[in-house]
């Protein structure tokens, strides 16, 4: 059980008193990110410390941000959705197959792709809430099933030649030098932040995640909330798939699956920041860019790939551990 007691107590007791522990906990990841940028910037100022490099980081990893944001919705309600990467791959493939092989206009192809994603979320919710099966098992099964569908409709082939209109509005068009994909991710992040922090729905999701029985006794329709969260997650997975197709200009049946672990790593890392102890969209987005900045810096320095893995895994474990030590909380995740 997680509580926000440290934060609220600090404020209540101290008024304007500066609470270093609270500050370090909330913005530790931001500080670490800045430190990372400073280190890589000092080592490779001409390559790393350039706006084109940061615009590339922001633009190319927007897909991962959306997948991570999708994951944190059911996580907040206490459910895992491990089918999201499969939904993402299915969505990009549906958009590709319809647009390239059946000459369906890209707008309709996108709608079909997102509709298919939402359908998967509906099926997930159905089995999880109606038959009371653990979300991990159901989404593992549906994810595998969805992967089979993806291979079937694509004949296990890469589909290239997707409408340049999609590519244009995801990757080519830029604002302040950053591809539009980044701003879509920011918009999704802002929307989730608003729902989580300022609406009754957001509070209900949180209550359901913290204690299903208590939430039920409080009059919250727990199953409906969980079902909705799973559908929202799949919706964002499908949206990420469309963005993925726009980022690469093609759809392939397997590479999207590699997003699963980085997305979960970022979700858990993000939960140590901004609103510590809670899955939150700002923290998740920060975590994605913290991890990607580290990987990009290491890549530019020509550091071997195994160091990337050390960084990824090490950053996650160290961040979560430090957060526990600073706050002294128990059983946060």
């Amino acid at each position: 059980m997680t509580t926000d007691t440290t934060t609220s107590e600090g404020r209540a007791a101290g008024g304007w008193d500066w609470n270093w522990i609270d500050f370090a906990e909330r913005f530790g990841l931001v500080i670490a990110w800045a430190a990372l940028i400073a280190v890589f910037g000092a080592i490779a100022p001409n390559t790393f410390l350039t706006w084109p490099n940061f615009s590339t980081i922001f633009g190319s990893q927007a897909v991962l941000v959306v997948v991570t944001l999708g994951i944190i919705i059911p996580l907040t309600a206490g459910d895992f959705d491990v089918s999201i990467a499969n939904v993402m791959t299915l969505s990009s493939m549906i958009a590709g197959v319809l647009n390239v092989q059946y000459q369906v206009p890209i707008g309709w192809a996108i709608l079909a792709a997102i509709g298919a994603g939402v359908l998967v979320g509906f099926v997930n919710g159905f089995f999880i809430t109606v038959f009371r099966i653990h979300s991990l098992i159901v989404t593992l099964g549906t994810g595998t099933f969805v992967h089979g569908v993806t291979l079937w409709i694509s004949d296990s082939m890469t589909i290239s030649g997707i409408s340049m209109n999609l590519v244009k509005y995801v990757m080519i068009e830029r604002l302040f030098g950053i591809p539009l994909a980044f701003y879509y991710a920011v918009a999704v992040c802002a929307a989730i932040y608003y729902v989580f922090e300022f609406t009754a729905v957001g509070r209900r999701i949180l209550f359901v995640g913290r204690g299903r029985e208590v939430a039920r006794l409080s009059g919250i329709r727990v199953n409906r909330v969980r079902w909705g969260c799973l559908m929202a997650s799949s919706f964002l997975g499908a949206t990420a798939g469309v963005m993925y197709a726009g980022t690469t200009g093609a759809a392939d049946p397997v590479s999207g699956l590699s997003y699963m672990l980085p997305a979960f790593a970022a979700a858990f890392l993000g939960a140590t920041s901004v609103i510590p102890g809670r899955f939150n969209p700002l923290g998740a987005m920060l975590a994605v860019y913290f991890l990607v900045t580290g990987i990009t810096g290491l890549t530019m320095l020509g550091i071997s790939t195994f160091v990337h893995e050390l960084f990824y895994g090490g950053a996650l474990v160290i961040a979560v551990t430090l957060s526990q030590l600073v706050s002294g909380r128990q059983e946060r995740f």
Partner: peptide
């Protein structure tokens, strides 16, 4: 360009 096989990399 070191990478782990992800097209976004």
């Amino acid at each position: 360009w070191e990478n782990q096989g992800q097209p976004t990399q």
